[in-house]
Design a protein around this nucleic acid. Sequence first.
DNA 1: TTCGCGCCGTGACATTTGTCAGGGGTGGGG
DNA 2: CCCCACCCCTGACAAATGTCACGGCGCGAA
Lengths: 207, 207
Amino acid sequence: MTEPIKLLLADDQALVRGALAALLSLEPDLTVVAEVGRGDEVVAEARRTDPDVALLDVEMPGLDGIAAAAALRAALPACRVLMVTTFGRPGYLRRAMEAGANGFVVKDTPARQLAEAVRRVHAGLRVVDPTLAAETLATGASPLTERETGVLRAARDGGTVADLAGALHLSEGTVRNHLSAAIGKTGARNRAEAVRIAEQNGWLLGD
Amino acid sequence: MTEPIKLLLADDQALVRGALAALLSLEPDLTVVAEVGRGDEVVAEARRTDPDVALLDVEMPGLDGIAAAAALRAALPACRVLMVTTFGRPGYLRRAMEAGANGFVVKDTPARQLAEAVRRVHAGLRVVDPTLAAETLATGASPLTERETGVLRAARDGGTVADLAGALHLSEGTVRNHLSAAIGKTGARNRAEAVRIAEQNGWLLGD
DNA sequence: TTCGCGCCGTGACATTTGTCAGGGGTGGGG
DNA sequence: CCCCACCCCTGACAAATGTCACGGCGCGAA
C-alpha cells in the first residue's frame, strides 16, 4: 500500500474540527497532519506540514476560507483544496472555484461521503454538489458593483445612513444612491431585505 | 467494566453529526445508539433506543433544540440532555436550563473535552461554560414582551410594516408601537439593529 | 377595588429612507 | 474619438419609519 493522504483541517469551531479529524482518521488511507482554527494560519501550517489535501471552512476569523484557498494554491500548488462549509450559498461555490478550489462540499452531506470526496480531490477530480452547482448557474454572479457590496456590508449590522457615510467616508446622498441601486438590483423593497438577499447569495464575502 | 453510556446525537448537519459520532465512538465507555437530523424526531428516536445522554444542537429544523430538550425531559426523565451548539447566545443558555438541560457546550470548545462533558452530565453533574454563564448573568433575561419579540421575529427577513401587520393580523400603528418599544428596550436606533441585538442575545428563539 | 402592565388601536408629527433627475470625474473598449 | 460603466456629489420629493400622546380592554397583584 502507498503512503496515506495527508490532510490539513481548517475550521473555526474546535469541536467540529476535532470531530472531523476523528471521522477521517478512521479511514486507513487518510491521516490528519494539521489542524488550524483561523484562515490566516492555513498557509503557514501547510508550509510546515506539506499536506496533500486541505479541507477549509468558508466562515473563519482572520481570513475567510475562499481567500485562504487562493493563498494556499498560490503558495503550495501541489496541495489540493476541498471547501467544507455550512452554507450552500451560490456565490460561495463560484468564488471558491475562481480561487482554485478543487471541491466543494456542504456540511449536510452524509458523513460517509466525505472521505470519498477527499480521495477524489486528491486524485485530481473535481467534487461539486450537483444541486448547488445548478443553483449557482441559475443565480449567476453578483450584479452588485464594488461600492454597492461595500455599502451593503456596512449596512449589515443596522446603522443609519449617517453611520455608513461616516464609516465609508462618503456623502449621505451617495450612500443612499448606492443603497437604492443595490435594492433595485436585488429586487428587494428594503435596505434590510437587500442585505438579506445579498448575504444568502454569498455576494457579501470579504471584509 | 460497566455498560457503556448510550448516546443520542441530534444535529441538522449530517457531516458534523457523523463526525461527532466518530469522535465519541473513540471512547470505549461511550456508544452512539441513535442519530437524528431534526428536532421533532428526537423524542421518537429516544423512545426507541433509550439513550442515557442526548446531545442536542439548538439550531434544527422542525423543532429547535431547546423545545426538543423540554419534550425529551418530559418523555424520558432518566435521559440527560447536553446542549451542543454553535452560538453562545446568553439567552440560549438560560432557556436551555429552564427547559431542563443538564449541560451546555459551545462548538468551539476543544474536542477532547466533549467526552468528559458527556460523562459528567451522565454522572448527574451540570456542565456549563463559565464564561458563557457569567455573560448570561450579566445580560439578564429578555426585556421584551411576547408581542415585541413576535414582531421582531417577523421583521427579521426585512419586510415593510404593512407586511408585518398583515402577517400578525395587527394594525400598522400597533406594529410600529411594538417596534418602537423594542427599539427602545434594546437600545437600538433602528428596527434592523434591534433585530440584530435581540438575535445575538438569543431573545428571538421559538417560531 | 385600585393600580400597574401588557396589549390593541388611533391620530399626528418629525425624521429617515428610497427615488429620481441632474452634474462632473475617471478609465476602458469599440 | 466617443460611449459606457462606475464613481461621487447635490438637491428635491414621496413614502416609510420612529416617536409621542391618547384611550380602551383584560388580568393579576397589592
